[in-house]
Amino acid sequence: MASPMRIRAAAKDGVTEVRVLMAHVMETGQRKDSSGALIPAHFITELSARHNDKLVLSAQFGPSVSTNPYLAFKFNGGAKGDKLAVTWVDNKGDTRSDEVQIA
């Protein structure tokens, strides 16, 4: 089961800065465990961010992104109290969505 993200979103002068910390192992599929067996790939493939249900960011992730990824981005618009939701999907079909109010 996927762990919660930590999302911070703050609006200033008509621009909203969003910072997202995701809990994910992001296994590349190329590492081996102590017995020498390959650890299966397990990583986030897609991520989207919505501001009041309007898509503001869509990104493709891959195995080159670090464990527990951190993502920061800005978009035009957004106001205090608006909804900001982030969703990711990984290669095993696991998904996680979290939502905050813009500060």
Binding site: T28, L57, A59, V65, S66, T67, L71, A72, F73
Partner: peptide, 11 residues
Amino acid sequence: KQFKAVALSLA
């Protein structure tokens, strides 16, 4: 792990 940026507009 090696890293690469996934989209230009993102920090």
